[in-house]
Every structure is written in C-alpha cells, then in structure tokens.
C-alpha cells in the first residue's frame, strides 16, 4: 500500500510537473491570470467603490455573492458541528473537582455528594488537575484586550489596509479561544454563551443578506450598494464603500461566532463542561 502510494504519487507529481512546463514564469505581469479580469479591478476599483484596498472591494462588492455564500458555508459548518457533537445529557457518574481558593486545597466530590457550587471560597476546576497558573492568567488578562482592539481595527480599517471581516473575525475568535485555554471553558461560556454565539452567527449572515435585500427594496439589484446612497446621504460611489463596511461587520461577527462555537464543541466533545 505504502510503496504503491509512493509510486502513484510520484507519477502524478511528474504529470503535474509536465503541466508546469507550459505555465508562465513566476511574477510574469502578462500571465493569463493577470491579463483578463484583474486589470479592470486594479484600474477601476477606486473609482467604482472609493475603496483603496482592491481585495476588500473585489471581495465584498464585485464578488459579493461569492462572499455571502462563503459566510453561509461557515455558518453551516457551525450548525453541523452542533448537530454532530452537542449533548445535553450530563455525563453519568463523573466526579467533580473543586479548589479552595485561599489554601489551594483541591477536593474531589463524587457523584451525589454536596457540591460547593455557590460558595465564594471554592472554584470548580477541570477533572484533569490544573495548577494555579498565575503567570499565564495575568498575561492573558493583559494581552486579550489588545487582541480584541486590534481585531476591531482590522475589521474597520479593511478599506485602507490589509484586513476585513474574515481576518478580523478570526482574530476576535482567537482572543476568546485564548481566554478559554487560559481560564476554563465554563467561565468563557458564562461570558459568551452558546445562545449568544448562535445569535451572532445568524445575525452576521442576516446583516449580509439583509443588506442585499435592502438594496433590492430600493429598486436596485441584490447587493448593489449604490442604492443605499439615499440612506447614507452620500453619492453612490461612497455608498458602495459604506455598504462594504456593513457587510464586513456582518462577516466579522459570523466568523467570530463560528470560530468560538467550533472551539466550544470540539474542546469538550459537545458537553460544554470541561474544556482542554
């Protein structure tokens, strides 16, 4: 099997390499990929949409349909993950671990025992024993706000610098995942619950599709943001720029919520009690 695979993939690699001989060289400005559609984008995106970052302009305006369905794809991924993994039944006969916060003593309470859940002096810890990790927690407390501010900057400044909804959303989701890794899953879910995530997920997609439908309502094509000029009180070109920003915010929300949801479900195998 292994040797057969090696031979097979060597042959396939050679076939692909044979095809490469016909390809244009690296960095050829007149290659087929750069000579049909992309000159239009490069030359007209600023006058069409008032967005200097062509990638953002193409992503959210020229190829708006594509991006909308990409957003729906990741939304579907989150839903599939919930359907596959989420279990609402608490696990049978599992003990719980608690730590007395003043002394650091850990208690193991078997099923049926009295748990000090509402006591201020105890905190529940994961059943795989975790020590006090003061350095990690303090570092996270300091770093996470800056990560989140940077994520919002990446979303909001995607018109003028590399960035946009997908990238900013992933960074925002990563900050939540970092929090969940450094503290624990239960505390993260207390701050950003499952329902909230599902709501943000759906709201992001709704913002995107809703913008398109709003454009239709204003007697224009689906996702033709220039129809929003009356609402923003600007000229049609600037309205496209603002429309792109709204859409990017929707994408950012959806991506963030999907990343967090995937982490919640994968880290706890759908039980949402003890994470990594």
């Amino acid at each position: 099997m292994k040797r057969g695979g090696l031979v097979l993939f060597s042959i396939m690699g050679l076939l692909l390499a044979w095809g490469v001989l016909e390809f244009p060289g690296l960095g050829d400005p007149s290659s087929p990929a750069s000579s049909h559609l992309s000159p239009y984008y490069i030359q007209h995106s600023l006058t069409d949409t008032a967005v200097p970052n062509m990638v953002t302009a193409v992503l959210a305006d020229y190829r708006g349909y594509d991006t909308m369905f990409e957003t729906i794809v990741i939304f579907t991924a989150a839903i599939v993950c919930i359907f596959l993994l989420r279990t609402f039944k608490p696990p049978a006969s599992r003990y719980r671990m608690y730590r007395h916060m003043a002394t650091g003593i850990t208690l193991r309470i078997e099923k049926g025992g009295k748990t000090p859940d509402d006591s201020e002096h105890f905190e529940r810890i994961d059943s795989v024993w975790v020590p006090h990790d003061l350095v990690i927690r303090t570092t996270c407390r300091m770093v996470i706000p800056f990560i989140q501010v940077f994520a919002l900057y990446v979303i909001a400044h995607g018109h003028h610098s590399p960035g946009g909804g997908f990238q900013g959303g992933v960074i925002l989701g990563a900050s939540v995942v970092l929090f969940a890794v450094c503290f624990d899953l239960r505390r993260t879910i207390r701050y950003l619950g499952e329902k909230m995530c599902a709501l943000l997920c759906a709201l992001g997609v709704l913002i995107y599709a809703g913008t398109g439908i709003l454009c239709m309502g204003l007697q224009s094509n689906f996702l033709d943001y220039s129809a929003l000029a009356g609402l923003f009180g600007t000229d049609p070109v600037m309205a496209r720029s603002h429309g792109i920003l709204i859409v990017e915010i929707g994408v950012g929300m959806a991506v963030m919520a999907v990343m967090v949801m995937l982490y919640y479900n994968l880290a706890s195998a759908g039980r949402h009690d003890e994470g990594l």
């Binding site: 990741i74 991924a77 989150a78 995937l262």
Partner: peptide
Amino acid sequence: VVSVATFG
C-alpha cells in the same frame, strides 16, 4: 476560512 470550517 472555508478550510478552517471544513476542518472543524
């Protein structure tokens, strides 16, 4: 982003 979603 889609590859991350499919990976999830």
